[in-house]
């Protein structure tokens, strides 16, 4: 691919999705976009870029954006954040929300659904402590194609073996031919909707917990800051934000602070300075980080 085509694709993707592509990601373009080209009757990447430049084929534009921004997803990816959610963050929030009996969780890059469904399985296992609660899990993603798959909750044998404990498979999935489908009760717990983090998301409402893992790495500093600070506005005072294990807020925004002892978990900076009565949900967690 020549430089002018590469630069055009970079600009195009940054505007559409905020994705930053450096020269060393050339291999990614080839491995992800050649199949898209072939599937749409185009012989090469050059022809594909030419078609995007013409800009008439809206569907092709969407397919290219999706192919470049979709990530492979595992159930209970990285394990630790989900242990933290189950053992530390949720127990504190269940106590704090004892009177409103409502909990809202946002999976901000839901992809094919593994992350929000992992959260749903954890909530289901804790349901004895949340009888009669209203639980909302919202999964958003840029790509319509992955959301369709997420809603169906249908996974291949390979997918259900990446991170999903066998007891969970037996308990929450049904085998349909060669595929495994997550049970209807769990599917009903998650509401999937399209959403671009570059655009406004305040209409989604407030979230006690936000999962935004391994997405911000694709954005430049300024965009990261903007997204994180808009997320802060969607969190109550004791809200908790989960980032990917290689991500940080340090040097990006001073409105969030790491919760000490809980790797990858962040809370509002203001929470750390106002840990007093009435006791916020995360007080026992946040107090440790002072």
């Amino acid at each position: 691919m020549n430089k002018s085509d590469f630069d055009f694709l970079c600009d195009f993707l940054r505007q559409r999705s905020g994705l930053i592509l450096s020269q060393d990601k050339m291999y990614l373009i080839e491995s992800r976009l050649l199949p898209v080209a072939k599937k749409n009757g185009l012989k090469s990447l050059e022809e594909l870029v030419a078609a995007i430049r013409r800009g008439q084929d809206k569907k092709l534009v969407q397919l290219v954006t999706e192919a470049m921004t979709t990530n492979e997803s595992f159930f209970f990816r990285d394990k630790t954040p989900f242990d933290t959610l189950r053992d530390q963050v949720l127990p504190a929030l269940i106590e704090a929300r004892g009177s409103s009996r409502q909990l809202r969780i946002w999976s901000a890059a839901a992809s094919t659904g593994q992350e929000p469904y992992s959260i749903a399985m954890i909530l289901k296992d804790l349901q004895a402590r949340m009888q009669g609660w209203r639980l909302d899990i919202i999964g958003t993603d840029l790509s319509h194609e992955v959301l369709e798959k997420a809603r169906a909750g249908m996974y291949s044998q390979f997918e259900v073996q990446r991170g999903l404990p066998i007891q969970m498979l037996v308990k929450y999935f049904k085998q349909i031919g060669e595929m495994w489908q997550i049970d209807a009760g769990l599917r009903a717990m998650v509401n999937f909707q399209p959403g671009n983090l570059l655009e406004r998301f305040d209409s989604l409402g407030k979230f006690d917990i936000i999962f935004c893992r391994n997405v911000l790495i694709y954005f430049d500093q300024e965009t990261k800051k903007d997204i994180l600070e808009r997320m802060v506005r969607q969190m109550p005072e004791d809200g908790m934000l989960f980032l990917g294990s290689a991500e940080t807020v340090l040097g990006v925004t001073d409105q969030l602070a790491a919760v000490k002892g809980l790797r990858g978990v962040y809370c509002k900076k203001s929470l750390l300075t106002t840990v007093s009565s009435p006791r916020p949900a995360a007080a026992p967690l946040a107090a440790k980080s002072a």
């Binding site: 595992f74 394990k79 044998q157 390979f158 073996q161 990446r162 991170g163 404990p165």
Partner: peptide
């Protein structure tokens, strides 16, 4: 583990 398997599957299952 249901065959066929790969490194990822063995690693995540053994981690589990």
């Amino acid at each position: 583990i249901m065959k066929p398997f790969d490194r990822d599957i063995i690693e995540t299952k053994f981690t589990e």
